[in-house]
Design a protein around this nucleic acid. Structure first.
Lengths: 193, 193
DNA sequence: ACCACATGAGACAACATTGTCTCACTGCGG
DNA sequence: CCGCAGTGAGACAATGTTGTCTCATGTGGT
């Protein structure tokens, strides 16, 4: 009886560890094979297959993980509180840990065709777009850039940032500042502040 | 005797057509097979192989094409003339046709390991970074965002833009404006102008 | 008409990856 | 001590892609 609980628990722990190892590896090498993923997680390919029926299932699970982390980040950023530009800064800071995985899934075209987690992504898109819309309504953000584009741009900058950091082109500690400030303020120097 | 000229000419024309077809296809479906690439170009796989020894050679040729187009865009943008922010706007406008191909190559990790065209990319990076550096030196651009990051961000936004347009999320005619204005001015509404 | 050459179609083996299977080993609880 | 569940290692076939080959066809120049 208890064994079921222990079993379920151990599986969950291992599964999560495998998932995070896979995320870390695929972030760096998006074409890694199941064998490489297994080795990166310190398990055999057979065990990897026992946890995830196949590569599709693995990517699907990574999508679910990424969606969950993004939702957590969205909650932690409290997008409805205070000025929208501060909300965006909080969002970038909170979502940073998921940026690498996000970049991987962003380029995984399978993401678009298979509508497995499509609802989850749409939900996140909507929440992100909402903060931009709120900023526009409050007169904080310019209205010639659509919320949809700002959302898309945020993803692109997160991916670029994660990639640039992993390549050593920019310092990891500057990640949040670089992305948030560019997205909000742009490259042009401004008079005020 | 003349046949050699005609031969060379025909080869060049066909090769260019194949290359552009491949670019258009791989922009949409980065995992397309050689067979799909051949069909997209309206030729057989055998002929495709006669033009490009293999997939690696094809990607390498696409890199060369993209590099050439980027250099052309850089020339046409006259990055050394006038205010840096206008130069950036011209650059985005000129480089737009290459954005899709750029996005494909940007995610092709093979690009980083094989140092085939590395010098070409470095040269482009340097020219792009130079305009941001010039803008900083002239007091136009803020100095807390490094030229390297601004360059990286430009690539990311170009990729996001190309992808968003091809997915129908943003209108194609807004491409240049969306990217250039976000990169330069950011999302925050500004008092002046 | 003749010939050279590029092409398309298809066959073929080589290769990597995947998914499934078996078997032996280990650790842990009963 | 026994049994069981999970694991690692490896074998295996199936699959898809690639690279190479041959052969028949058509076309354009001589």
């Amino acid at each position: 009886m208890l064994s079921h609980v222990v079993y379920g628990c151990l599986m969950a722990v291992d599964r999560d560890h495998v998932l995070r190892s896979a995320a870390a590896l695929l972030t760096r090498k998006s074409t890694a094979t199941m064998d490489e993923v297994a080795k990166a997680a310190g398990i055999s390919r057979a065990t990897l297959h026992r946890h995830f029926a196949g590569r599709d299932a693995l990517v699907l699970a990574l999508e679910a993980l990424c969606i969950a982390e993004c939702e957590t980040a969205l909650d932690a950023a409290r997008l409805d509180d205070g000025p929208a530009h501060d909300a965006v800064r909080r969002l970038v800071r909170e979502i940073e840990p998921a940026a690498g995985l996000l970049a991987f899934l962003y380029t995984e075209s399978q993401l678009f065709e298979g509508d497995g987690q499509n609802a989850g992504w749409t939900r996140i898109d909507d929440r992100v777009a909402a903060v931009f819309r709120r900023g526009q309504a409050a007169g904080e953000f310019r209205i010639d850039l659509t919320p949809a584009w700002l959302t898309e741009a945020l993803y692109g900058l997160l991916a670029s940032g994660a990639w640039a950091v992993s390549e050593g082109r920019v310092a990891g500690k500057d990640f949040t500042h670089m992305i948030a400030e560019l997205l909000l303020g742009g490259a042009v120097r401004r008079e005020e502040s």
